[in-house]
Design a protein around this nucleic acid. Structure first.
Length: 803
DNA sequence: TGCAGCAGGCTTTTT
DNA sequence: GCCTGCTGCA
């Protein structure tokens, strides 16, 4: 179909038939089901490169969306390696980064100040707390965290306060807070992450010329990790897709979505796997391609992953396969305690690093220890530390989230936008300058009465406290004056000195690290400036992007090959109003945006050859030669909070699937009989996931014995296994590995199951964690939220099941 | 204003 | 069990 394909065949080299088919699909909507390790990013980037080099699209006609900055950067880098090309005209970035870019270009239409600043999660929470205090809202009844969660949830669903369905008084109040919060943000000229998305969406939806313009402009819309999109993000994508109404001369654009329903692990933050099915239906997707060939793992690992995930019902259906051999079996270890589990892991790692096995020694950075929740890392860290094995923990505070950095940024933000009250409050008395709670309260009252910002309300204050405030504001205003002709680096250096931050931390006993971080902020700014155009996401559109000229040009004239025929419709003589000004953001505002959108690396020293510790969630998208999945216990993994509903359990299983498929060569699974959690020893049963793995791929390093909560009693939560029946799925499996276990008694008389909710007259409602013993000796371990975890003798305790 | 001591919470996370 | 955040006292 495209003769040029020959000329670009180097691009298509080394692609398997399915990948190649995906890359060269015609200009129609497509869904690519890309399994773990199937070369997803490669297909996505090669697709763009292929479209560009065959002249089907100009760089300006590409819209490619990812979730993380890392993924966006990787795409950009790979693309540049494939084609000699200026990627600046392309819209490649994260959802939020692109929304930011869009809103900067159309800030007037979006009803925002040009230099609007972005609230991160911390900022948002403190803005909500401040608001609730101001309006005397009972924070026992409406905890700020929950309110934040509510607001974010509404925005993820695309709902403004007036659109939220209200059931009862509490709802009404929450919506009222939401409304007040919106007004506060608008007044202060700040937007939160959800707002970036929602406001972009609303502008596209409500403004036909703008929408029309972008629909014509973006010929190809590509989306990574489609299974993680939430309702609003999907609706946002739909805004860019031209309706295929068959109107004469229409040149519809196309959406190319890449995803893997089996790796959808972010439902808790609003992701909707259902978007994949909706997309197929609503867009009448003509092409669905499955990438099932895995280039990462040996087949014992893949078989385990396939078998496990086959226990999920709601799947689009996909099976990974590999040409590599079986490889080592998946090793399973049961430890008596979490400490012993950690020690075993450390011991195995020493063997792996030393290279006792056939593969020779592994690099430490090729070994990962994964766990379900962060709390599990401590005991492993202790083990590694005692054995003097270098390790690196992912997660935790990132650079731009550190307190000293947030303080410095708050000074910068107040310089940029004096009505940013959140930032004002953060620094008004930090470092301490004699402005106490009372004077701040007075100032807040004055600001409220006058309907102005805290900064502007200062001039109305009187007295001694007023003097301190006046001095502070004067200092800020003088600083602002002095920064006018300075470079970004100079501005930051000036602020660090004049704010007293550096001095303050120098005087602190443990402040050396913080001073160092502040210095690092100067470096961060420096490298930000030296990046092309201050970083693509942060700045307003470069003038050329939406210049009237461009709109009239044929796209081919900016593309690679001038001889290309014109592909796009000539754009109408319409220029989106905001874009014609060519205004750009100040470097400071751009840098602040960058800091909010890209929270920076974890501080851990990169580059060092160290064992990698992280949660399964953060491991998504990564791969390692050797992977340990630890703490595979009922209640932990799958997590007890997810046991009560089938959807939750399926997500836990997908999480396990993600964990397994991280491993290239070796996979180790471990669990412990007891574990210290929240200061209490918990007795845990091994995870049901063990019973969902192919026995032939496993090697049990410790005897596999019958567990009570597992096979004998069936699993709780009323979730039938695919082998049918809630009783014995694991049991049948058991008999393959070991001689039949001496007749387990039939269903226990107490009728309790793990995961079940029960009611106790004294302790209230609780969840059954595990059951031990038979008949009169039977005991159950029950977690009562209000009284902690108890062992109760079932013959004595009066427990009633709660439906 | 600043620090010490105590209560409460606690799954996963990117932007 | 440990960290965060708030209250109360000097």
């Amino acid at each position: 179909m495209f003769p040029e394909a020959d000329a670009v065949s180097p691009l298509l080299h080394n692609l398997n038939p399915e990948q190649r088919a995906a890359v060269t699909l015609p200009n129609e909507h497509a869904l690519i089901l890309a399994g773990a390790g199937s070369g997803k990013t490669r297909v996505l980037t090669t697709r763009i490169a292929w479209l560009l080099s065959t002249g089907q699209v100009s760089p300006g006609g590409v819209l490619a969306v990812t979730f993380t900055n890392k993924a966006a950067r990787e795409m950009m880098t790979r693309l540049q390696a494939m084609l000699p090309l200026n990627v600046r005209g392309m819209w490649i970035g994260t959802f939020h980064g692109l929304c930011n870019r869009f809103l900067r270009a159309h800030y007037k239409l979006a009803n925002l100040p040009q230099g609007f600043q972005i609230l991160d999660t911390q900022d948002q929470l403190s803005a909500i707390k401040r608001l609730m205090k101001q309006f005397n809202i009972d924070d026992e009844r409406f905890p700020a965290k929950q309110t934040q969660w509510f607001i974010a949830g509404c925005k993820e669903d695309g709902l403004r306060p007036n659109m939220v369905e209200v059931h009862g008084e509490d709802d009404r109040k929450k919506v009222e807070i939401y409304q007040l919060y919106e007004e506060q943000c608008q007044r202060e000229g700040v937007v939160d992450f959800g707002e970036l998305m929602l406001r972009s969406y609303e502008l596209l939806q409500g403004n036909d010329p703008i929408r029309d313009h972008y629909q014509r402009r973006f010929r190809h819309i590509l989306i990574d990790e489609f299974q993680d999109t939430n309702k609003l993000q999907y609706a946002w994508i739909k805004m860019f897709a031209q309706p295929r109404d068959g109107s004469p001369g229409a040149q519809p654009n196309s959406v190319f979505a890449v995803g893997d329903d089996d790796q959808s692990i972010y439902a808790f933050r609003g992701a909707r796997v259902g978007n994949m099915a909706d997309f197929v239906r609503e867009f009448q997707v003509a092409h669905q391609i499955k990438l099932e060939r895995n280039y990462r793992s040996y087949s014992n690992i893949l078989d385990s992953a396939n078998e496990l995930i086959s226990h999920n019902r709601n799947r689009l259906g996909k099976n990974l396969r590999t040409d590599q051999g079986a490889g080592e079996p998946v090793r399973v270890y049961e430890a008596p305690t979490d400490l012993a589990e950690a020690q075993w892991i450390v011991e195995e790692i020493r063997h792996l690093v030393r290279g006792d096995g056939p593969e020779g020694g592994f690099d430490r950075k090729e070994i990962a220890i994964l766990y379900r929740s962060n709390a599990q890392s401590r005991v492993i860290e202790t083990g590694l530390f005692n054995a003097a094995v270098p390790y690196r923990v992912y997660g935790g505070l990132r650079f731009f989230e550190r307190a000293e950095i947030k303080h410095a940024l708050a000074y910068l933000r107040v310089l940029e936008n004096p009505s940013d009250d959140t930032s004002f409050l953060r620094i008004v008395n930090f470092p301490p300058r004699g402005i106490g709670t009372r004077s701040i309260e007075q100032l807040q009252d004055a600001a409220r009465a006058a309907g102005c910002s805290l900064h502007d309300a200062v001039s109305a204050t009187t007295g001694k406290a007023g003097a301190n405030l006046t001095a502070f504001v004067a200092k800020i205003d003088v600083l602002r004056e002095r920064t006018i002709d300075l470079t970004l680096r100079e501005i930051i250096e000036l602020v660090l000195q004049e704010s007293g931050l550096v001095e303050h931390y120098k005087a602190e006993r443990e402040g050396a690290d913080r001073v160092e971080n502040l210095q690092e902020l100067v470096n961060a700014a420096e490298s930000f400036v030296s990046q092309e155009g201050f970083g693509r996401d942060a700045v307003a559109l470069p003038v050329d992007e939406l210049s009237p000229g461009m709109l009239r040009q044929s796209p081919a004239s900016q593309g690679l090959d001038p001889s290309q025929p014109e592909i796009n419709e000539p754009a109408p003589d319409y220029v989106p109003p905001d874009a014609e000004t060519g205004e750009t953001l100040s470097p400071l505002a751009a840098f602040l945006t960058h800091a909010a959108l890209e929270s920076g690396d974890n501080q851990a020293e990169a580059g060092q050859d160290a064992i990698q510790l992280m949660t399964v969630h953060s491991a998504k998208g990564l791969e390692f030669d050797c992977v340990f999945i630890s703490g595979l216990e009922e209640g932990l993994f799958p997590h007890e909070n997810s046991l009560s509903d089938p959807a939750g359990l399926e997500e836990e299983r997908r999480l396990m699937y993600v964990a397994i498929t991280r491993a290239r060569k070796r996979l180790y699974l471990s669990h412990s009989q007891t574990r210290l959690l929240h200061g209490q020893t918990r007795y845990n049963v091994r995870s049901r996931f063990f019973d969902e793995l192919p026995e032939g791929a496993l090697k049990w390093l410790t005897p596999k014995h019958q567990t009570f909560g597992g096979s004998a009693f069936g699993y709780g939560a009323g979730y039938p296994t695919t082998r049918g029946g809630s009783y014995g799925g694991g049991f049948q499996r058991e008999s393959i590995a070991s001689p039949p276990v001496p007749a387990q008694k039939a269903a226990p008389s107490h009728g309790l199951k793990q995961g079940m909710k029960v009611f106790h007259t004294k302790f209230g409602e609780g969840t059954v964690l595990s059951i031990e013993g038979q008949g009169d000796d039977a005991r159950a371990q029950i977690n009562f939220p209000r009284h902690g975890i108890k062992w109760l003798a079932l013959a004595v305790a009066k427990l009633t099941p709660v439906p």
